[in-house]
Structures are given as C-alpha cells and as structure tokens.
C-alpha cells in the first residue's frame, strides 16, 4: 500500500499511530514479535497489518501532480 492504514482492516482498531515506532525498532534489529507485543497489538488481524505492509509513498513523493 502507498501509506500505512489508519485502522486495522478487520477489527477497526487504531494502528496508524504505532507504525513509525514499529519500523524504527525493527530497523534497530529487534524482532517484529517483540515490538508488536510491546505495542499491545494482540490480535493477528492487526499484527498482519504491520508485518505485511510495504510503504510505497517514498517512491512517489518526489513527483508532484500538476494542479
């Protein structure tokens, strides 16, 4: 997806605010499981949102639309 969703597709729990922390911690070398547990993401519907997301907005962000 282009940008991380605000809410979990399945249960509607708010997850958008936790994405940045998740990415930064995983980049530091921590395991995804550990970070998700720390963030209190319990259900596997929400956990797959984090694990499977590919942030594509950086590929697009330097191209402005003509208005």
């Amino acid at each position: 997806m282009v940008i991380f969703p605000v809410r979990c597709f399945t249960c509607g729990s708010v997850i958008g605010d936790k994405w940045e922390y998740f990415v930064n911690e995983v980049k530091k070398g921590r395991s995804m499981k550990e970070v998700l547990d720390e963030l209190g993401i319990k259900r596997y519907c929400c956990r797959r949102m984090f694990i499977s997301h590919v942030d594509l907005i950086d590929e697009l962000v330097r191209y402005s639309r003509k208005v």
Binding site: I3, G16, D17, D58, L60, V61, Y63
Partner: peptide, 15 residues
C-alpha cells in the same frame, strides 16, 4: 484527534 501521531500524508518537496 484522540491520537496525535497517526500519519495522514507524506509531503514531498514543494507540496
């Protein structure tokens, strides 16, 4: 907003 850190959009240069 109940949460302050939900990303809405990422702006590129001169947007």
């Amino acid at each position: 907003p109940a949460y302050d850190r939900i990303p809405i959009v990422r702006l590129g240069p001169r947007q």
